[in-house]
């Protein structure tokens, strides 16, 4: 049942009762007004929070256009036009961070999609066995581990002197690698870390979609002699494709935002690794805290927020066109 059906049903029911007598109708009107007042009251605490933390901060990106002095506040500081942006783009650092953000996110999206689909397909084949719940739980667990702990894990694996990976390398007669000083390895390391945290979640979404497929389709395909691989390409994938596309589009919409914990903690914020690991979020954080450079931070923030907004808006438009619905608005 769609929302529209429900609205119609509900609206139809209301007048039926109220037409019976004029007095009741006015009473209902008053009643509805007072109920509306209560509903409005109920929304206020959360609405205030959203206003403060979401809307006020939207206005706050405007500090990119002033020479922000904390003592003077946003409106008291001097307007400097685009000066902060000229300053920001005068070095390569922010372009490097942009490139890293977009390229690494793209890499993550593509590889995670492939792994999630493959995992979901495997789990789907054995879904009836009880042990599949164990696989599911184990693969999902990393998603709920904080990046602080993840950074411990990666350190135990990659520590130069006594990390397990170097131990294995040495056992194989290969030289040790000082992982935390060699930027060229980090796209792969970050990809594996991301995959480890994300694939359980991803596969679950696709598994749920696969479980929604009518089983008769698979039975018919089996009768016609189609193997599991053939079934995947000819039945499963075409049917769940809309969900895949929607998920990928939404991920692409957030391609300008990096996972701060992954890039800040897992890399141990090592300056030597910045060439491949510095992303917009870590760049902004550093500009804000380490160097305390408001103009740089605010300009970079404006740039990230606005481009990120345009990307997300585009993604949502496309999702609406493809899925025939707007994921967010459809629920409203």
């Amino acid at each position: 049942m769609t929302d529209k059906d429900r609205t119609v049903k509900y609206r139809l029911r209301m007048p039926k009762r109220s037409v019976s007598s004029r007095g009741l109708k006015t009473k209902m009107g008053q009643d509805l007004r007072s109920r509306n007042r209560v509903w409005l009251l109920m929304t206020l605490p959360a609405a205030l929070w959203i206003l403060l933390f979401r809307y006020l901060t939207m206005v706050g990106v405007g500090i990119a256009f002033v020479d922000f002095k904390p003592r003077k506040g946003i409106f008291g500081s001097d307007f400097v036009g685009l000066q902060n942006f000229t300053f920001l783009f005068s070095t390569d650092a922010v372009l490097q961070a942009t490139l890293n953000t977009v390229l690494l996110n793209l890499l993550f999206i593509v590889v995670t999609l492939a792994f999630s689909l493959a995992l979901a397909f495997l789990m789907f084949q054995i879904y009836s066995s009880s042990i599949s719940r164990v696989y599911q739980a184990v693969l999902l667990l990393p998603n709920f581990i904080s990046y602080v702990i993840v950074s411990y894990f990666v350190f135990a694996l990659l520590a130069t002197d006594n990390g397990m990976v170097n131990g294995v390398l040495q056992g194989l007669g290969m030289p040790r690698v000082a992982w935390y000083t060699e930027p060229q390895y980090w796209p792969t390391i970050l990809l594996i870390t991301h995959l480890w945290t994300a694939m359980g979640w991803g596969s679950l979404i696709y598994l749920a979609a696969m479980l929604g497929i009518d089983n008769e389709l698979f039975e018919a395909a089996e009768m016609d002699g189609a193997g599991r691989g053939r079934q995947f390409w000819s039945i499963t994938l075409p049917i769940i494709l809309p969900i895949v596309v929607i998920n990928v589009l939404l991920a692409l919409g957030s391609i300008f935002n990096a996972d701060f914990g992954l890039f800040f903690l897992v890399t141990r914020n090592q300056g030597l690794l910045y060439p491949t690991t510095d992303v917009l979020d870590t760049y902004i954080y550093r500009a804000l805290t380490t160097s305390g450079d408001w103009s740089m931070a605010s300009a970079a923030q404006f740039y990230q927020s606005v481009v990120g907004f345009l990307l997300l808006l585009t993604a949502n438009r496309l999702v609406k066109r493809i899925g025939g619905r707007d994921r967010d608005l459809s629920l409203m």
Binding site: R54, G60, V61, I284, Q301, S305
Partner: peptide, 9 residues
Amino acid sequence: LFSGGLVPY
């Protein structure tokens, strides 16, 4: 859709 991000926050 629109996030002000870290700096205004």
